[in-house]
Simulated assay, not measured.
Amino acid sequence: MKKILLSLVALATFGFVNAQSRDKGTIEITPKIGISSFAEQNEENFTNSNSGVELGVTVDYYFNNRWSLRSGLVADKMGGKYRDGQSFLYEDQLNYLSIPINANWHFGSTRKWNLNFGLSPSFLTSAKFNANGTTIKLPKNALESFQLGFSYGIGYKIEITEKFGLLIDAQFFNGLTNINKATDERILNAGYSFNLGGVIQL
């Protein structure tokens, strides 16, 4: 028991010693990969959610050791699933490239936690419709090519060396603009992702 307590104390001490403050002008690049789940929200409810892989890279520019500006490029599969009765399944397979513009607050005694929030412009890169295994490409006049969303998330950084660490985070997206061009029905994308990234300090 004594050895376990000593090990925990040593680990905690290492964490505090290894805590890094970020000066103004510090830049961190974080390539990341994750799993996502998105659905479409219409005027009445949400569709069933679909899952996909999130890929991206974000860049943090620090103003001080508590605040940074985060942006980058993030690729997501959005859309949603619909059921017609018990067996027939429809799915909108919408791929977007997003450019988040988020304020990022670094908190905790070692600044390893972060909370980010802001706007996320997204551009439609491909749109397909799947009906029970048969996939077709959606026409350009069916969907808006641009959407604006509110994005936010929370993460924790594990520092490995002075210049490298691992980031575990959860990110959330709520669409603010209608993606539907085909009818008068208002449809929004909404979802979340869980990610793992490598933090590289330049």
Rank of each mutant, 00 (worst) to 15 (best):
L124Q: 08
A127P: 08
Y156H: 12
Y156I: 06
P121Q: 13
F123W: 08
S145I: 00
L167G: 00
N174P: 03
I136R: 08
Y152H: 10
G133Y: 06
L138C: 02
G133S: 07
Y156G: 06
T161K: 05
Q171W: 01
Y156C: 08
Q171L: 01
A127F: 04
T134V: 13
G155E: 12
I168Q: 06
S145K: 12
L143R: 12
E159G: 08
I154G: 11
G165H: 04
I160F: 08
A131V: 09
E144S: 14
S126E: 11
A127S: 15
G133M: 07
Y156R: 11
N174H: 12
Y152L: 01
L143K: 11
K157F: 03
S122E: 15
N174K: 13
S151L: 02
L166C: 08
Q171Y: 03
A127V: 05
N132A: 11
S120K: 15
A127G: 07
L143P: 01
E162K: 09
I154V: 15
A127C: 10
L119S: 08
F123G: 04
I160W: 03
K140N: 14
I160H: 00
I154R: 06
S151E: 14
I168R: 01
E162C: 00
Y156W: 12
K140Y: 04
A127I: 05
G153E: 04
K163G: 00
E144A: 14
G133L: 06
T125C: 06
G118Y: 14
F123I: 15
S151H: 01
A127E: 05
T161S: 11
I158C: 05
F117M: 15
L119W: 05
D169Y: 12
A131L: 05
K157D: 13
K137I: 09
G165S: 10
E162Y: 02
I168C: 09
I154Q: 04
T134G: 02
N132C: 03
S120Q: 15
I168H: 06
F172S: 10
K137G: 06
E162Q: 10
L138Q: 09
A170M: 06
Y152P: 04
E159W: 05
F173K: 13
L166V: 15
A127T: 05
G153I: 07
L148W: 06
T135K: 12
P139C: 06
A170N: 07
F172L: 12
L138Y: 03
L124C: 04
L119G: 07
L166E: 09
S122V: 08
N130Y: 00
